[in-house]
Simulated scan of single mutants.
Amino acid sequence: MAIVTILSVAKVTQLSFLLIVAFLSLSLGGSLLIGESVQASSLKLQALSTRGAIGTLSFVIFHEVIG
């Protein structure tokens, strides 16, 4: 929601705005489908997913704070 709000306020062309929103929708929807299809009983896969999420979130936080 924040990204779409910023894009709507910024001077982005309508075609670019629609392409970015479509890309975000497809990537989030695809992630949801992949997450639903993965078996919850695999602890190693859950651990890797959690580590990846925490690592990505940490990178973004530090990049935004330092940047």
Rank of each mutant, 00 (worst) to 15 (best):
V65N: 05
T5N: 14
I3C: 14
F59V: 05
G55F: 07
A22R: 09
S41V: 10
I3A: 10
L33Y: 10
S25Q: 03
G55K: 07
F23H: 02
S49Q: 00
G35N: 01
E36S: 04
L18I: 11
S49C: 07
Q39I: 00
G52M: 08
L26N: 08
L15K: 14
S25Y: 07
G55M: 01
L26G: 03
I66Y: 08
A40G: 02
I3M: 06
I66N: 03
I61Y: 07
L7A: 07
A10N: 14
K11S: 15
L45T: 10
H63G: 13
G52F: 12
G55W: 04
F62H: 03
M1W: 03
L7F: 05
I3Q: 12
I20V: 15
T5W: 08
I3T: 12
G67H: 12
G29K: 04
A2H: 10
T50P: 01
T13E: 13
L18Q: 12
L7P: 04
I66M: 14
H63F: 14
I66P: 00
L32S: 01
A22P: 05
L45N: 08
S37D: 06
V60P: 01
G67N: 09
M1A: 14
S31P: 00
L48N: 10
A47D: 06
F59D: 06
I34E: 05
F59N: 02
T13W: 11
F59W: 12
G67W: 08
L43F: 09
I54D: 05
L32C: 01
F17G: 01
Q14S: 12
L33P: 04
E64C: 00
G29L: 12
M1F: 01
A40S: 06
G55S: 11
G52N: 11
L45H: 00
L24Q: 04
V4K: 12
T50L: 15
G52V: 04
L33D: 09
E64P: 01
S25G: 13
G67P: 00
